[in-house]
């Protein structure tokens, strides 16, 4: 079947098998390998990307279900050569080691801050609780997201207003 999916602002019109998982479409078919996979059971969260502005586990979404929808992946966070505050925060606070869970964590962090620009530590921990990191023990991820919250530009506030609408 043919699907039309907007990924990071680019429209892809692709022929697929109906059973193709969204994570494989993103990685194998259009070559955006920043989104990873780490389990089969939607437990690990390394495959998190946005489907119409909501983070979802793309190993448990069929590509066909995304037909006519928008997808955003980690590759879209950097804009105009400027890293997103969550990317900067992860670097500043050493919120990543092997880097495998990082794209999913970044997409969840961005979604959290879009809705809640000043989350508490507990809110941050709850937001990332469906994603496993084997390297960091989470503390530096929490610090990284806190850093991003504290160092977001006014653009961040605009984003919040847009989301609210």
């Amino acid at each position: 079947m043919r699907v039309n999916i907007e990924v990071n602002g680019v429209n892809y019109s692709e022929e697929i098998e109906p059973r193709l998982l969204l994570v494989h479409f993103i990685r194998d078919q259009i070559g955006l390998t920043g989104t990873h996979w780490g389990c089969d059971t939607s437990n690990c969260g390394t495959c998190v990307l946005w489907l119409d502005d909501l983070p979802v586990k793309s190993c448990t979404v069929l590509t066909a279900m995304a037909d006519g929808h928008r997808v955003r992946t980690v590759e879209d966070l950097e804009q105009g050569g400027e890293l997103d505050p969550v990317q900067k925060g992860f670097m500043q606070e050493h919120g990543l080691q092997c880097g495998f869970c990082t794209p999913g964590m970044l997409m969840t962090a961005r979604a959290l801050l879009d809705r809640n620009p000043n989350p508490s530590d507990l809110e941050i921990r709850e937001a990332i609780s469906g994603q496993i990191c084997r390297c960091t023990g989470y503390e530096n991820i929490v610090r990284a997201i806190r850093w991003a919250a504290a160092n977001s530009s006014s653009n961040g506030a605009l984003d919040v207003a847009e989301v609210a609408q």
Partner: peptide, 14 residues
């Protein structure tokens, strides 16, 4: 970090 943060790591399955 520069590549990992941008989704540009090079893992085997990539």
């Amino acid at each position: 970090d520069a590549r990992f943060l941008r989704g540009k790591g090079n893992y085997v399955d990539d």
